[in-house]
Computed example of a mutant assay.
Amino acid sequence: MELTWHGHSTWHVVVDDTELLIDPFFDNPKTDTDPEELDPDYLLLTHGHSDHIADADRYEGATVVATPELTGYVQETFGHEHAVGGMGMNIGGTVECGDAWVTMVRADHSNGIDTGYGTSAGMPAGFVIGDKKPTQESDADCTTFYHAGDTGLMSEMVDVIAPFFEPDAAALPIGDHFTMGPAGAGIAADWVGADVVFPMHYDTFPPIEVDPEEFEREVKAAGAAAETVVLEGDETYVLDEHGGYEDS
Rank of each mutant, 00 (worst) to 15 (best):
H8Y: 15
N90C: 01
V160E: 15
T31K: 00
Y245L: 10
M87C: 06
V229L: 08
A83C: 08
A62E: 06
G184C: 01
Y245H: 12
G244K: 00
V74N: 10
M157L: 15
P199T: 03
L45E: 02
G112Y: 12
A125F: 08
A224T: 05
F145H: 12
M200E: 14
A62P: 15
K132A: 13
G223E: 07
V210T: 13
G7A: 06
A222N: 04
G130N: 06
E137R: 12
T135M: 02
E137A: 13
E2A: 05
E156N: 13
P199F: 00
V102H: 10
I187T: 13
G86W: 05
A189E: 09
E81K: 13
G72W: 03
P29S: 03
E156M: 04
S155I: 07
A188M: 05
L38M: 12
G193M: 04
V64I: 15
H52Q: 10
L70A: 06
E235I: 03
I161T: 06
S50Y: 13
G233A: 05
D16R: 13
A170Q: 08
E241K: 10
A140N: 04
G79P: 13
H109F: 15
F127Q: 05
V197P: 02
T115S: 14
E235L: 04
H52G: 15
A140C: 04
D17W: 01
T33G: 00
V13S: 03
L38S: 03
G233E: 11
E36N: 09
H177Q: 12
H201M: 02
E216G: 04
V160P: 00
V238S: 12
Q136A: 11
P29R: 00
G130V: 00
V13T: 15
A170M: 09
V160L: 15
D32N: 07
H6A: 11
G152Q: 13
P212T: 09
V219I: 06
E36C: 00
